[in-house]
């Protein structure tokens, strides 16, 4: 899933202080799981903003709504009938949701309420760690299902590099060396021979190097 972190309330206040009718828009997907932009966080932010504006002596309407997703047309359509009541939206979805809301409601200012981070697993409540960078050409079959693109600081494809010490990365002693993990995993799978195979140059055009990307699936298009 995508992990996001809450923006400081003061930063959000600074962005929206000129508006008088504000909708706080949450998302029921990834940002709910990482407790940054779900229904509860929408309630907390809206309540805090209402109190802030009241304390400042300003009459500002702050309403709450949480959609199933903000990255699909059908769910964003749910607010079409109510959007005219507001002069700004604070989206607590990831950057994708913020942008799609803005695209869909072109004349409505949409502000981000979270900082979108990366693709993660939930190791435990409150701890999310990166596993995938969406490079567009998955090499996990060769690396024992451990990704050197997202988990090696240098994205080395034939590792480890000289900075690997005691299974840890040279950039931080708390970060596992991805290639140590790969070797350990291949050993456990009794596939250590695969480690001897040299990975060819990777086609990075499917990564961000090729500019903004899209996936077209004609077989499922209508």
């Amino acid at each position: 899933m995508i992990v996001a972190d809450k923006k400081p309330i003061e930063e959000i206040i600074d962005e929206i202080k000129e508006h008088e009718r504000i909708l706080i828009l949450g998302c029921n997907e990834c940002v709910t799981v990482c407790e940054a932009g779900g229904k509860k966080e929408v309630g907390v932010l809206a309540s805090a903003l209402r109190m802030y504006f009241l304390n400042e002596g300003k009459e500002v309407k702050v309403d709450e709504k949480t959609l199933e997703r903000q990255c699909d047309h059908e769910y964003l359509e749910e607010i079409r009938s109510m959007i005219d009541q507001y002069d700004a939206v604070v989206s607590l979805a990831c950057g994708v949701g913020v942008q799609f809301t803005a695209e869909k409601y072109h004349s409505m200012p949409v502000y981000p309420g979270v900082n979108t981070c990366f693709m993660v697993v939930t190791e435990e409540r409150g701890l999310w760690t990166e596993r995938c960078q969406g490079c567009g050409e998955c090499i996990l079959a060769r690396t024992g299902a451990i990704c050197p693109v997202s988990r090696c600081a240098k994205r080395v494809l034939n590792g480890p590099c000289g900075g690997s010490t005691d299974g840890k990365c040279e950039i931080n002693k708390e970060i596992d060396c991805a290639w140590q993990l790969i070797v350990d995993r291949l050993k456990a799978l009794d596939r250590l021979d695969d480690y001897e195979k040299i990975s060819p140059l990777k086609d990075w055009s499917t990564d961000r190097a090729g500019g903004p990307r899209k996936v077209i699936r004609e077989d499922v298009q209508q």
């Binding site: 003061e10 206040i13 907390v44 805090a48 903003l49 109190m51 802030y52």
Partner: peptide
């Protein structure tokens, strides 16, 4: 923390 931030 929230209440300190919003001045309450």
């Amino acid at each position: 923390k929230i209440l300190d931030t919003i001045g309450i």
